[in-house]
Design a protein around this nucleic acid. Structure first.
Lengths: 274, 274
DNA sequence: AAATTTTTAGAATTTTTATTCCATTTTTCG
DNA sequence: CGAAAAATGGAATAAAAATTCTAAAAATTT
């Protein structure tokens, strides 16, 4: 490795670190690449490991890891570790303590339940952050932004989400219609050419929602699905399928991730329409 | 400190550690208590700090911290740290990075929005964990568990929550009635002696909800409020006020914390009724 | 294929960090 | 109040970890 390739400015944030890593990883000699690959896959352990431990994990001698740190711009391992030890200040401080206390209230107690549901919600949100398909999201926004009237359908457990969407669309002056199934009336003929359908359903999937989506699809209207599996029953009628990984506790789901996704859709569509 | 009080079995999990900590914290001499308090408030930093750093933070000499570790049952600081370094497997290897990536999609892009809403949701849940008033929660569950029929009211942005509650009550075979304001009908006379009202509203508070709560209160029916401030307009009509600290992004709220609280109520009430 | 450069491994060294020990202070109890 | 016990601070020591250095091995170039 040529000395001129060494960017001597050390990364000052975890993101910069990752950028730098992807930047150099391809033209690194064998041992150093081993380091880079192991580190890329175990970035989170830098803060709590020693050189020897990481080196053992990467299956290289400690000195190789030292050289690796220096190539990344750090003076040595300690400096690199300092970055990660500093950056590590996540939600823990009070939260974890309280959560433990809540759960200690005894199994079945309201506090313990609350602790569980909070955790389920948080896990769902985190999973959503790491699993979202940006392309589908983008496509969904485009479809809905182009539509004249947006029809929203979601029943049973998905109904709250549909309601919230209807509320936000209203607030943003987006023409939207909520299909709520009141009086078992279905308003399928309210879908006019130029409209789009946003269908929300989770296992066990609601018949009416699937039927409405199918109907819209048959009439060549674009359908966006918000559901739990790419291959669910909405897959064949929808142009764009958004999946949310919702973590259940007991028989109930938190809806956190679903609502985050829903509100994002609504706001993005609202602003795209100007 | 008497030697016999020293439980020489070192904690083997973070939970055990916390239990042990609360167990001993009260009968500890001054310096050691300082350690205990600092450690309790900064548990998350044990994995990434040195004795000297923690001691400085707690404002005690390093040797005090060492004695503290030993009182907890560890052979020394290193052994204690090992516990936390092992347990340290937080959500951020993937989550935090992804979140940053999402936000980098550019201000106003769907991904960036999603990132913001995810964060707002997470923050809300964490705040809920540390702010919940267990006594009120317990009281609320008791009130609702004793009621014959539970009436649920929540309009506008609170409507999704009310719907979800109605759904969960239904699933748990709890007699509940959702006051949805369809057709501007109010069903205030559906509230019978022995019933209870669960009223949900957030600023700007919905007139109808406040009025119904007031009405119920006037007729001596118990009211549980789910709202955003203890001193909100429901304060005087409600027996039990549950507050949820919801973090907004832009003009929109995540509802995560509210839903977590709602579902907890519903499930706790459902099981209390057996 | 020889010469040059780069890369590597591991031992030696330096630095940092943890731990112990004991003289001194504070607290407790008769 | 005074003696005994417990707690404390800090210096001394031991252990662990980081870092450097060099001879040998690979890789590259001519």
């Amino acid at each position: 490795m040529d000395i001129s390739e060494i960017n001597d400015a050390a990364p000052t944030s975890v993101e910069e670190f990752r950028e730098r890593l992807t930047e150099v990883i391809d033209d690194l000699p064998r041992r150093l690449r081993q380091c880079a690959e192991y580190i890329a896959a175990n970035t989170d352990r830098i803060a709590v490991s020693t050189v020897a431990e990481l080196a053992a994990g990467a299956d290289v001698p400690p000195s190789a890891l030292m050289r690796f740190c220096q190539i990344l711009g750090f003076s040595g391992f300690s400096e690199m570790q300092r970055l990660f030890r500093g950056a590590y200040a996540p939600g823990w401080p009070d939260y974890a303590t309280r959560l433990t206390n809540l759960k200690q209230g005894g199994a079945g107690s309201p506090s313990a339940l609350l602790g569980e549901f909070i955790e389920a919600g948080r896990a769902s949100l985190e999973a959503l952050a790491s699993s979202v398909d940006e392309a589908s999201l983008h496509q969904a926004v485009e479809i809905l932004a182009k539509a004249e009237t947006i029809h929203v359908v979601g029943l049973r457990r998905a109904f709250p989400v549909a309601c919230y969407l209807a509320y936000v669309f209203e607030k943003m002056s987006v023409p939207a219609m909520l299909h709520d199934g009141v009086g078992k009336l279905d308003h399928r003929f309210a879908l006019r050419p130029g409209d789009a359908l946003l269908a929300i359903t989770f296992a066990p999937y609601s018949e009416e929602t699937i039927a409405l989506a199918q109907d819209a699809h048959d009439r060549r209207l674009p359908v966006v699905a918000l559901t739990d599996r790419v291959s669910g029953p909405l897959a064949k009628s929808a142009q764009s399928v958004l999946t949310v990984p919702e973590v259940d506790f007991g028989a109930f789901r938190s809806l956190s991730a679903t609502i985050a996704m829903a509100i994002t859709l609504a706001v993005a569509v609202g602003s795209a329409r100007g």
